[in-house]
Simulated assay, not measured.
Amino acid sequence: MKYLEYTPFERINAFLDDLNLGERTINGCIEAYSCKHTGSDKRLSFSLENEILDYFGNSPDVDSDSTVEYVSSRSSRKMLIYLILTLSHMYPDYDFSAVKAHQFFTEETWEGFRQIFDTYMSDASKEWMETNEDGSLLETLYKALNEVINLAECDIYIYDPNSDADPFIEKGSLWSYNFFFYNRKLKRVVSFRFSCISNLVTDGFTMEEYYETDEVFDDMDM
């Protein structure tokens, strides 16, 4: 996988880099990758495919639909491998070889993504509107994604990491989402992660003390 630089993403990344909203900080990052293998990708890809086949072939807990989708379909296995390789390039110090297919949920539509974005990024969107007059944060994100990966041809996935081995957990973490936009024709993946950290917890409060203050979420649209 090769990291691809795209100007449309730079403005969004700059805005979502430690966006301080008082009692919490929003972080977001959007990146594009080519599905062309580089470096050790081929070896890791081969290893991942064998692990996928072994897992679905030997696990009694896997339902038949998943087995059909991820074992009999070569393109589905490739898709899963591309997503795992993207994670590996995003976080090179973490081992994602144990990630399983069921940890990627197909969102399928932009509408599903929009609903999550509107719910959790409402305060960030308000902040964006105060300093940008050329459209909302979501509109800007849509245009950038469409330019880079053509949303009409994309499959959209949410990655749900194992809570016991989550490389994204930070002190004071309140929530995080990891979306992947995969275009088979362009052989390209765009990742978009956005998360929220409590400034109160990072300043010394415990999570219990944090959640005891009801006013924390008073100004947050949920």
Rank of each mutant, 00 (worst) to 15 (best):
G112K: 12
T106L: 15
M129T: 14
E111N: 13
F117S: 01
Q115R: 14
D95N: 15
G112W: 02
V148W: 07
F104E: 03
D95C: 06
Q103W: 06
E108D: 13
A101E: 10
R114M: 11
A144W: 05
A152Y: 03
E130M: 13
H102C: 09
A152F: 06
T119I: 11
L141N: 06
Q103D: 04
D123K: 13
S136D: 03
F117R: 02
Y94A: 07
A144I: 02
F113T: 04
L141S: 00
Y157A: 03
V148A: 00
T140F: 07
A152D: 12
A144S: 09
E111F: 12
E108P: 01
E127V: 05
E108F: 08
T119A: 13
L138F: 11
E111K: 14
T140Y: 02
K126W: 03
E153H: 08
Q103G: 01
D134L: 09
K143Y: 09
W110K: 13
G112Q: 11
D93E: 13
A124R: 02
I149W: 01
T106I: 14
F96Q: 04
T131W: 04
S136F: 02
L138H: 07
Y120A: 08
S125K: 03
I156F: 08
E111H: 13
I156R: 00
Y157F: 15
F105M: 15
Y120K: 10
A101R: 06
G112S: 13
A101M: 04
E130I: 09
R114V: 11
A152E: 13
E133N: 11
L145T: 03
L137R: 00
S136C: 01
D123G: 09
K126S: 10
N146E: 08
Y120H: 14
E127M: 09
Y94S: 00
E133W: 06
E111Y: 12
D134F: 07
F117T: 05
E127H: 08
S97I: 10
E127G: 05
T109I: 09
N146G: 02
M129I: 11
E153K: 10
Q115L: 14
L137C: 01
W110A: 12
I156T: 06
S125Y: 04
E108Q: 11
M129D: 15
E107Q: 14
W128Q: 08
Y120W: 14
D118M: 12
W110E: 14
N150Y: 06
D93K: 11
E139Y: 01
M129F: 12
E130C: 12
D118E: 15
E108G: 05
K100Q: 13
C154Y: 00
F117L: 06
Y142N: 08
L141M: 02
A144R: 00
E153F: 06
I116M: 14
N132P: 00
F113E: 01
S125M: 08
E107F: 14
I149R: 00
E130P: 00
G135E: 08
F117P: 03
N132L: 03
T140I: 05
T119D: 13
E108M: 10
S122D: 14
L145F: 05
T131S: 11
L145N: 04
